[in-house]
Nucleic acid binder design. Sequence first.
RNA 1: GCGCCCGUAGCUCAACUGGAUAGAGCAUCAGCCUUCUAAGCUGAGGGUUAGAGGUUCGAGUCCUCUCGGGCGCGCCA
Length: 579
Amino acid sequence: MNKKITKIITASILSLDIQDKNLAEDLNVEVTQTKNLSHGDFSCSVAMRLSKVLKLPPLDIAKKIINAIEIIDGIERIEAVPPGFINIFLTKSEKTQVLKKILKENNDFATEIPGSKNSVLLEFVSSNPTGPLHVGHGRHAAFGDSLAKLLRKAGYKVETEYYINDAGRQIDILLISILIRALNKLEIKSALPRACYQGEYLNPIADQIIKQYKNLLASLPVNNFLKQDVSEDVEIDLAILSIKNEIGDEMFESLSGEICNITINMIKEDLNTFGVNFDHWYSERSMINNGLINNSINDLKKLNLLYKQEGALWLKTTNFNDDKDRVVLRDDGRSTYFASDIAYHADKKKRGYDQLINILGSDHHGYIGRLKAGLSSLNFSPEDLEVVLVQFVSLYRGKKKIQMSTRSGEFIPMSELYNEVGVDAARFFYVSKSQSQHLEFDLELAKQTNNENPVYYIQYAHARICRVLTQMTSQTMSFEKAIAEKNLDKLTTKHEVELIAKLSGYPALIKQSAHNKTIHTLANYLHELAQLFHSYYGAETFLIADKELRNARVLLIQAVKIILKNGLSLIGVSAPSKM
RNA sequence: GCGCCCGUAGCUCAACUGGAUAGAGCAUCAGCCUUCUAAGCUGAGGGUUAGAGGUUCGAGUCCUCUCGGGCGCGCCA
């Protein structure tokens, strides 16, 4: 309908006696659904935009457009109101069409044809496998998973991916942390370097290592790794070196591989419980082993974009809008994290996706330019990569802010959160606010106000509808679709009109949310829909003697039920039939 | 110092790419269960959108400056 109206308005403008026809054609006629029903069902502000070029008062232009317009089926009337809005009122039967459509299409309502848009690789969470996910990752997981579902509904072909940083110094540190912990458990006392990871989650891993490698551990000499006289960084590097020498590079590699497997499985299980499952798990280590990183560096060499300075190999990212050049190979010959990322993103493109979307923490915003420069330098278009930034989650216990740091082990695991408040509530809470805003999460409040959480409000609306439907059958009434569809004109109360308008807006909401990559808009929409329903529920009785009105109302609430369930499913929240 | 993000009701947040009277929840106050589930409904109070200029038919939204907060500027990942 929206498109049809746009068309007739555009046609009307073109039929006017306008000197500059090109300008009228270039003009983007926007027809939007109104917020306020007294302004009609749709409204258009094009007259006010034309006002300046035509040098006429906007209201006059609006009137002219209306006079020249060709009224089509489904439109009741069109009016021009100050300061120059064109408001379009639809006929009753046109408005209720949407209800029939929702019932007919069910979950497919507002779903675009699969694959009608770009193919997308969506990467998110990608937390370092050095420990369990914490509440900050939870936001990324909830947001990313919902975005994948939303984009699929909007017609994109989406695959999700988790990039595993299972190479590099952090993994060495993890290994040292676990080995020393294991030694201590075996009464081979050794102090922990300052940079080591701490936290309860290391215990079961250490136990497992003891089980499998008792002899190896026992053969290690007692060593004091704590060296207060050097810096933290030097201290840990010495510890890594010393252990490597003791057990050999090969054993070191195999051990850290094994430990990564354990932590990755912890993370997978955690995400699975949270309702988040990835299509692909992509390992950085595998990329080193199969030569992808070397290949990329060779490609860059051929393109003459590398140079040596102070023993290291640099990439001229400044050629591509970066503020300084970046190192890809260190003076000791090892590749940098950035080198991995260039190879990784080039590989993503080579796998054939049109569009790459990365969801990153806002603290990584400085990295975006570098990533795009990396893609550009290998002749990929930087526009193919879109980065969605998610702001931090601040945790509070009451008024006290909790400081989080993975290394010190002072973090609240994501699992603790969803165990306390439930997966549904946690997921809804995470996505109910714009990802570009800081999220303040008060644990005390979240745990206490279980029943006040907005997610229950929405779920309750769904459960109430289900209840009405079962009551209907137990009162030996049945839903007769034909009767209902014939009597939709009888839905005339304020609540009914508003509900129908709200339901009509669902496809546009999906489209717009997918375009803007926001989920909170969907969460808000569902809350508003539930609110309209609860209000309706309080004002009217559905199961009444009047068969015609009853069936029409039951059809309406069934449509509400379908949309509630569909919307909740996109957020990864269940729609219970009983509460 | 340079760069990015943010500042809306007592609190937590909305406001569809500049649109009509800035909206919800929580909290506060006053009502509603003999009737489809009260995890609900109805109503009230609460705002100079941090501040000052500017752009235009129209600004919370765009531009400039000031103030206040967060983050980033490694041969870490």
